[in-house]
Amino acid sequence: MTTQRATSEPKTYLGHHAFDGARELGRIAALTFLGALRSRRPKGELVRQLYQVGNRSLLFVLVTLGFTGMVLVFQSCLQLSRVTGDLSQVGGEFIKYLIHEFGPSLTAMMLATRVGAGIAAEVGSMVVTEQVDALRMCGVEPVEYLLVPRFLATQVMTLTLAVFGVLSAVLMGAWTAHQTFHVPYSVFLDISKVRSTDVLTGVIKALAYGAAIPIVSGFCGLRTHGGSEGVGWATTRAVVSSSFAVIVLDFLISALALLTWQAH
């Protein structure tokens, strides 16, 4: 009897937990979406979160995307100058790629580390100091109260910061092309190659990332248990899971876009 219990229980326990986790994630996502639609939260909290997510990540996104722009332009100019030597197309293609791929995805990768970790750390320390229980004892649903403002703020700010990130990358890229390969600014800054489907793909990606990051990291934060070590674990898990969510969503949306729009 005892041996059977020892072998069978951990297994059902693990399966039970995986199932529990998936159901909890679904519940959090549903509650967040519903709450965002109803949105009865005081506006002050939303403004505070917009500031937290947006303004405080702006410099970070500008610097990282700027440097990425430099690297990408440098690499493509270097490769092209070895093959054809014609650098007039680089700017147009670069801006197109930036809009439908690198701009939103890299911005989201950066936000997954900054905002995802921030949400998990904040919510996680509220869990271990019993503040989340206190919310529930006051008749407040923690998902709605804590995650909805963060969800809305991340949703708005991922798109906004992606625009800033693209601008920063384009400017730094144009500067690199001008300085190292003598491509004139007027040739580099060519937006004629950008089609409406590129912009649409970029916007869809930014919206998807903006939804995934707060839900995934809020889920990790709410499942925190056990003191300061627990908060650290939850933050780690939030960074990994939300970065991974960005990578998977990037792949899926890119594949869908390729299959629907490029086939024609």
Partner: peptide, 14 residues
Amino acid sequence: QSQIGYLFQNNALF
């Protein structure tokens, strides 16, 4: 739950 007054071990002040 809103009819219960709960004093938490760690106070849990917001």
